[in-house]
Simulated assay, not measured.
Amino acid sequence: MTGLFTFGETMGLVAADGIGPLPYARSFSFGIGGAESNVAVGVARLGGEATWLGRVGPDATGALIAERLGAAGVRTLAITDDSFTGLMVRHRRSAQFAQVDYHRAGSAGSRLSPADVPSAELSASGVVHVTGITPALSETARAAVFQSIETARAAGVPVSVDVNYRSKLWSRFDAAPVLRDLVSRADVVFASPEEAELFVDPQDVPAALAKLGPAEVIVKDGARGCTALIDGERHALPVLPVTVIDPVGAGDAFVAGYLADRLAGAPPADRLATAIAAGAFAVTVPGDCEGAPTRAELAALKGDDVRR
């Protein structure tokens, strides 16, 4: 029981090159992206075992997802569905602001169901990681998340939840009770202050989240670093100073760093330090998961800027 198991929707990613309004973009890159698979790639790059499960369409994008994740070292359980693989289109209106549009209603990934997630996979994992994105996709996807959590808990497997609220998928009113329920069933929770404030008192976010049940609460606070309440002990770490190229994917890299070290048996302070370093590395390269760092690359953040 040493590996990460996660599931959700991974999509094709059409990203405008450069910075500026989308109508003026003249070139685009095509890749893949999805919060859960980003975390799986991050854990694998840091030397951990990682499995991702999800539905993909019978199309070139679905094939690319399976190929890219496999090449990244992720054990990939891609279920072929007769619907299309979802897409997201991203452009950077300015250096500080990115916009993402989804094309995923009725997609293969949204048709995930409880029957798709084998109990044996959940019970044999070191940690099961889910996000607040998947419950927003469909009723069957939501059922898959909650049933999987209960199966993992019954087997004594820790459950990790990244709140990951997406306003383009559901309203705050619809999301809040579901996300609160999700957090109450978790052992490890990741959230930004804004996400947590959807359903807990904003005065002391780590403590408020911990009151719902999780023993490990990590609050990701962007350029302000992170705060955490882990087994009753408080922690706070600043960010590492780096040049930001693309902020997308930093949160997933952070989660991957923490979970990779947790799976390796590292103490909380080390897990948080690795999470901060992984998130910092992620913003120095473009893409959702393509630049997920290795252990050696994280070490280089504090060393020479030329590797010979």
Results as ranks from 00 to 15, higher is better:
203 Q>P: 12
176 A>G: 08
165 Y>H: 11
110 S>V: 05
105 A>G: 11
101 D>E: 15
214 P>K: 05
122 L>Q: 03
111 R>T: 09
91 H>A: 12
139 E>V: 11
79 I>V: 14
211 K>D: 15
99 Q>N: 11
139 E>W: 03
130 V>H: 01
190 F>M: 05
99 Q>P: 14
199 F>W: 00
213 G>E: 04
128 V>Y: 03
208 A>D: 07
138 S>A: 12
213 G>R: 04
147 Q>K: 01
147 Q>P: 02
185 R>L: 00
171 S>Y: 00
113 S>F: 06
111 R>D: 05
197 E>S: 13
196 A>K: 01
127 V>L: 02
165 Y>I: 00
105 A>V: 13
172 R>C: 02
151 T>H: 11
76 T>H: 10
207 A>Q: 15
102 Y>G: 06
186 A>Y: 02
107 S>D: 15
193 P>M: 03
149 I>P: 13
206 P>T: 09
90 R>M: 14
167 S>H: 02
124 A>H: 13
214 P>G: 09
103 H>I: 13
103 H>Y: 14
168 K>M: 10
146 F>M: 00
182 L>P: 02
92 R>M: 08
159 V>H: 04
187 D>Q: 05
145 V>P: 15
189 V>G: 02
148 S>F: 05
166 R>P: 07
106 G>D: 14
202 P>L: 07
113 S>H: 08
190 F>H: 06
202 P>I: 08
178 V>E: 08
94 S>E: 08
88 M>P: 09
110 S>A: 15
92 R>S: 10
164 N>M: 12
93 R>Y: 13
211 K>C: 13
197 E>M: 03
206 P>A: 15
174 D>E: 12
175 A>P: 05
189 V>Q: 02
108 A>P: 15
173 F>Y: 05
133 I>Y: 10
79 I>W: 06
155 A>I: 06
106 G>F: 07
144 A>F: 00
144 A>Y: 00
95 A>Q: 12
168 K>I: 09
157 V>I: 09
121 E>N: 13
115 A>D: 10
183 V>C: 08
182 L>Q: 07
132 G>M: 09
82 D>K: 15
188 V>R: 01
82 D>N: 12
96 Q>D: 10
165 Y>V: 01
148 S>I: 04
89 V>R: 11
130 V>K: 00
127 V>P: 08
76 T>I: 13
178 V>A: 07
89 V>A: 11
210 A>F: 10
151 T>W: 01
172 R>M: 03
124 A>C: 13
176 A>Y: 00
101 D>K: 10
130 V>F: 04
139 E>C: 14
142 R>Q: 07
135 P>I: 00
146 F>E: 01
150 E>G: 07
196 A>T: 07
93 R>T: 13
133 I>Q: 06
78 A>F: 03
137 L>V: 09
188 V>T: 01
87 L>K: 12
91 H>L: 12
135 P>E: 00
164 N>W: 03
210 A>N: 14
184 S>V: 05
97 F>H: 06
117 V>M: 03
194 E>W: 01
133 I>M: 11
129 H>V: 09
171 S>K: 02
106 G>L: 08
79 I>Q: 12
97 F>R: 06
184 S>K: 05
116 D>I: 06
154 A>T: 11
86 G>K: 12
151 T>V: 11
189 V>F: 09
193 P>N: 09
